[in-house]
Design a protein around this nucleic acid. Structure first.
Lengths: 228, 228
DNA sequence: GAGCTGCCTTGATATTTATCAAGCAGGTTG
DNA sequence: CAACCTGCTTGATAAATATCAAGGCAGCTC
């Protein structure tokens, strides 16, 4: 029987098309957990025992190596994570921490693999999600390898502008130091990069970004369908 | 009926577990094509009409942006590519060129999607392959963001050493300029990076790498299960 | 309101990486 | 064999990026 607390995810693309029986099988043994901000929920190298879904709040995936750390991505409401490790029954390659108070749904990995084998609609949704995440990562890597840090920032500003309904003025969704890490630079350099973008039509005041000349910014950023 | 020329891939993990009927449906309309070296087979932005499999030879996936180019990965015998774009029916995010004379098997993307929906064993194999590629890309990105170019080279040398049966002396499998691009640096810098590794137990002569002090090299490279 | 604290910014400097310009070596070709 | 290629290397220099050290500012706490 489907518990009420999982209703919120039933309509997500990943679960919408599967049968009710499959959904019940999937959520058997699943649970919801509340986390305070800045809490490491998952450490890289651990077994992926649960598929995670952000019900509310915000989660950062990051990785470390010899005292260095880098932010890989930030996830918001309705995003899933740990899907690839779940499907392959392997350890996580990334760690996860909450950035805000967050509610996370956790579905036993074994359920995911079992239902995958029996419900074709779910299988299709899983493949779709995996392929989407994979392609997003390829784009991310192209961004890192083909652009300078200032170009990456310019394109980030344009993408956020688009995501926030084409608003010419908007708030950054994350702290600057995390943005810096996501874009592959230091916080100091991010500050300087914002200054470098002034002549290209960008004004910054705290968390507020204002695009004063979108044409100029676009000309500089050269956004690309196959990266952004 | 399965044509003889596709027998060679029947035993690959991606196709081994599916039914004969499914395999026939999959390879209907498929074909084999021979390419000379240094031939661009696929350009990013094009529709992914075929799933590609390297039967023999060697293929480089690469990407370009505003007159810059970067090598993303190099594929050898029995590797598939364009799988994510095939499953999502989207354009390719990367271009592909042969590095040597190569035989490529091309399977219509529509067949792949159709058989995915009807053959659970194939569906499982597809997900496995996608998740594997996705995780490889995450590792690649961690390598790029968490390490300097010299550290990346040191770990590359160790990985090849392992791949080539722990041989302390071996040939680089690709040209140095492509290796440089793969590792996210210029050919000039790759040369200098090799020089920098001399005191860490690496000797280079043309395409031949010799590890003279594996302990020292390993201490410098700090290889990591979650990256390499 | 005084004093913290954490994040961001700025300036000075160092390191890393790229660019530009020769030059070299091995293989190919006329 | 000489004249090319082409890819690699080296040196000099420039650009990009990181590090270190203050300092500023907003939001807390007491």
């Amino acid at each position: 029987m489907t518990l009420e607390r999982f209703e919120s995810i039933r309509e997500l693309p990943l679960f919408a098309e599967m049968t009710g029986v499959s959904f019940d099988a999937l959520t058997r043994g699943a649970f919801v957990q509340n986390f305070p901000p800045n809490m490491v929920m998952i450490s890289e190298g651990e077994a992926a025992d649960f598929l995670h879904i952000v019900q509310s709040g915000c989660v950062e995936l990051f990785s470390t190596w010899t005292n260095r750390e880098t932010s890989v991505t930030t996830l918001y409401e309705n995003s899933t994570f740990i899907l690839a490790a779940t499907m392959k029954d392997r350890v996580n390659l990334m760690s996860a921490r909450t950035l805000q108070k967050s509610r996370i749904i956790m579905i036993p990995s074994e359920n995911v693999r079992n239902v995958f084998a029996t419900d074709p609609a779910f299988a299709l949704a899983i493949v779709d999600e995996l392929a989407r995440c994979y392609r997003a990562t390829i784009r991310n890597m192209k961004n890192l390898k083909l652009r300078t840090s200032i170009e990456r920032l310019a394109n980030y500003i344009l993408k956020q502008h688009h995501r926030q309904g084409e608003a010419l003025s908007y708030q950054l969704p994350v702290e600057k130091r995390r943005l810096a890490s996501y874009l592959g630079m230091t916080p100091e350099n991010l500050s300087r990069a914002f200054n470098n973008l002034k002549p290209h039509g960008v004004a910054v005041d705290g968390q507020t970004i204002t695009i004063s000349d979108k044409t100029k910014l676009t000309a500089f950023a050269k956004p690309d369908m196959l990266i952004d």
